[in-house]
């Protein structure tokens, strides 16, 4: 709680500057990986998601003082929040990804597809 005394008198705390630069760098790396790296898509997704998580943790620790005692540290509920978030997202994707075998070939179709098929039948 006494960290506000640790920094120099110049006004800009070192911790914030480090956090800021790191987040800029991480963003640029993610953008680069996406556009320029030419890696396979699953790899890109995995890498940029990891980068996003790192950056989020950075924000929480460096800017939001999550580890600050109040009078006990407050990360318990946020961690549980992230656990539920993971369950919601991963669970929904997993549970909802069935019976969609024709989605990929047909994803542009929508309502138009039906009428095409009808035309076939009429001759």
């Amino acid at each position: 709680m006494s960290e506000h005394t640790e920094h120099s008198e110049s006004g800009i705390p070192v911790k914030h500057v480090i956090g800021f630069i790191a987040s800029i760098v991480l963003t640029l790396v993610a953008a680069y990986t996406t556009v320029m790296s030419g890696l396979p898509v699953p790899w890109i997704i995995a890498i940029i998601m990891i980068l996003a998580v790192i950056q989020a943790v950075l924000q929480l620790v460096m800017f939001m003082h999550i580890a600050e005692k109040n009078p006990i540290p407050q990360y318990g509920n946020i961690l549980f929040g992230f656990f539920i978030a993971a369950v919601v997202i991963a669970g929904s994707i997993w549970v909802m990804s069935f019976g969609m075998s024709d989605m990929d070939m047909d994803s542009g179709g929508g309502s138009g597809g039906g009428s095409e098929e009808m035309d076939h039948s009429e001759h």
Binding site: V88, S92, M96
Partner: peptide
């Protein structure tokens, strides 16, 4: 039904 919406997703979110 139109616009490629996903009715099952309601059931999923509702029971979540």
């Amino acid at each position: 039904l139109a616009g490629e919406g996903m009715p099952m997703m309601w059931a999923n979110l509702f029971w979540l």
